[in-house]
């Protein structure tokens, strides 16, 4: 783990060094192509002035609201569709038609229906996160071993107990896979939504700096986006590790 961290840091450092070195060698004067050092200064500027923090908060709020809504509905629906073969086979084709539509394609419709603002962003994030979480949950619930179903029948435990103690717990590894993909999709959808239809947030921050030709700040904003995406993913991984303590190291995908 520690070695891997050092490897990553080393790779990033080498890339930055080559970039900075080429900047000097080729005497790049184009202000639209910043050097790593200029990006570092821009990052320092937006952090120390506090300019970027409100945008981070707006973006985080949007992504968390949209992601939680998507998670709640997708997990509930996925478990239910996995439990009931009839409902599953009715809904699956509909989901398969909607799933390939990229979240960005929903933006014009969202702006027309919800207008410019948070509600459009929530909707786009919801659409982005919903499908990976739903399909993974559905797949997990559907692949529950026959022995567990038979045991539940034998024990006559009731639907609520079956959902809570067996189906949900069995599907958790699949749900977490969906959540990890979903949070990435939510974050990507958020930035796309903010680039087009918002008056705040990191997407908006990038868009404003495009108009001001501040590529250093644009890249600084992109770095913040990447870093926050990584943090959210790590946060879900930490919850996963806590919830799935009963899985052996061999069972884990990562």
């Amino acid at each position: 783990m520690k070695n891997r961290f050092i490897q990553v840091i080393l790779t990033v450092f080498i890339i930055l060094f080559i970039w900075q070195f080429s900047y000097f060698i080729f005497q790049i004067k184009n202000p639209l192509i910043p050097s790593p050092f200029q990006i570092f200064l821009a990052l320092k500027e937006v952090t120390l002035s506090g300019e970027i923090f409100p945008h981070i908060l707006y973006s985080l709020e949007r992504v968390l609201v949209g992601f939680f809504m998507a998670s709640f509905i997708a997990i509930s629906l996925g478990l239910f569709c996995g439990y009931s073969k009839k409902i599953g086979s009715l809904l699956e084709p509909l989901v398969e038609i909607l799933r390939p539509i990229p979240p960005i394609a929903w933006i014009p419709l969202a702006i027309l229906i919800f207008g410019l603002g948070d509600r459009s962003s929530y909707f786009i994030i919801f659409v982005g996160a919903f499908f990976p979480i739903f399909t993974n949950t559905f797949f997990g619930a559907r692949s529950i071993p026959k022995v567990y179903i038979n045991l539940a029948k034998t024990g006559n435990i009731g639907v609520y107990s079956y959902f809570k103690n067996i189906l949900l717990k069995f599907s958790l590894p699949y749900i977490f896979t969906g959540l990890k993909i979903g949070i990435g999709m939510a974050w990507m959808s958020l930035i796309a939504a903010e680039l087009i239809g918002a008056q705040s947030g990191l997407g908006y921050f990038i868009q404003i700096n495009r108009l001001l030709l501040r590529t250093d700040k644009i890249i600084a904003g992109m770095i913040v986006i990447g870093f926050l995406g990584l943090l959210l993913n790590q946060f879900i991984k930490a919850i996963e590790k806590k919830c799935l303590f009963w899985r052996t190291e061999n069972d884990r995908a990562d």
Partner: peptide
């Protein structure tokens, strides 16, 4: 006519709840 707790099956594969 239906499964019941009076007849419990012990399977060849692992049928314990892993969690």
């Amino acid at each position: 006519i239906a499964p019941g707790k009076d007849r419990f099956v012990i399977n060849q594969e692992n049928d314990l709840f892993d969690w």
